[in-house]
């Protein structure tokens, strides 16, 4: 195999994994934009997306399109419960406390999933079949194209939503200063609930798209969440475009590292680049530079 073809194939493989990281990273960014907290249950939303899809599509035999919608709604409801329940009821609204609540929620979700769905890995068929397409002699799965497409579509729509619509601007206002947002007449609680639904729904979409390629099990959320979180940090926490760039960069670095250096150290290489970026530009590649020293 000629070297440039090999490189091209590595890039495709990196772009595929990278866009799944990006899709998860966007979910982190949405919640950050509304509440300023890091939602460590984001990976569980992704895992639940796969699990609900398996139940609706494989077990209950609902057609794929309706099963997709039902899954997104179900996971959005889980997100709503998380926000309306423990997060809104918490006495202290300290960021650190809220973050710890999301950590606890992720453990609870993982445990319940283990009880309800069992311990086996599961999968669902790919949306457009499993035979690879050949582009310029390099193989690419149709599912990868779905993931690229959905990631780009989601980030474009979210950018418009947060910049141009009243609701989107209101959510950003809540994040900037909750007290002033209340004074300006913004229904803060409704905005927070909405942002959790949105981010859970997006996580569900990521889970549905990922499952045919990677399979899903109750404990898959932690690793997915970690990679998505790293991608979000790399791109600049809170920035939608940054999340996409960070995700794709992380995926491509992993793939090139595994391909050309050593498959044993691919994660090491990817995370070293993450550390280097953070040393040079602590706010991430596209970060707004709002970090304050205390």
């Amino acid at each position: 195999m000629p070297i440039f073809l090999k490189l091209f194939q590595f890039l495709i493989s990196g772009l595929t994994t990278g866009s799944t990281y990006a899709l998860i990273a966007i979910g982190f960014s949405i919640i950050h934009n509304a509440t300023g907290i890091v939602n460590f249950a984001q990976g569980e939303f992704v895992m639940l997306g796969g699990m609900f899809m398996i139940t609706f599509f494989t077990v209950l035999k609902i057609p794929m399109a309706s099963a997709f919608c039902l899954t997104v709604i179900s996971v959005a409801i889980v997100g709503l419960i998380l926000e309306k329940g423990p997060l809104e009821q918490a006495r202290s609204k300290e960021i650190l406390n809220l973050v710890m609540i999301t950590v606890a929620a992720s453990i609870v979700i993982k445990g319940l999933t283990m009880i309800l769905w069992g311990k086996n890995s599961m999968t669902i068929p790919a949306i457009s079949g499993e035979s690879p397409l050949l582009i310029w002699k390099a193989a690419i799965m149709p599912q990868s194209l779905w993931i690229f497409g959905v990631t780009l579509g989601a980030v474009a729509m979210l950018n418009v939503f947060f910049r141009c619509t009243r609701t989107g601007k209101a959510i950003r206002a809540v994040s900037a200063n909750r007290r002033y947002a209340v004074l300006a007449g913004i229904p803060v609680n409704r905005m927070l609930a909405f942002s959790f639904c949105l981010s859970a729904a997006l996580g569900a979409v990521a889970g549905i798209l990922l499952t045919p390629m990677t399979t899903i099990s109750y404990d898959a959320g932690v690793m997915l969440g970690l990679k998505g979180f790293s991608a979000a940090i790399l791109g600049g926490y809170g920035s939608m475009t940054g999340a996409v760039i960070g995700g794709i960069l992380l995926g491509v670095m992993e793939s090139l590292g595994a391909g050309f250096i050593s498959s044993e150290y691919k994660d090491v290489l990817a995370f070293m680049i993450l550390l280097m970026v953070l040393f040079i530009k602590p706010s991430g590649l596209l970060g707004a530079g709002m970090l304050k020293r205390v």
Binding site: M1, Q9, L210
Partner: peptide, 18 residues
Amino acid sequence: SFQPTDSDMTTQLINIKS
């Protein structure tokens, strides 16, 4: 080689294929 938690091994297999 790969990590047991990895979700994609195409990169390693490209090397094997070549």
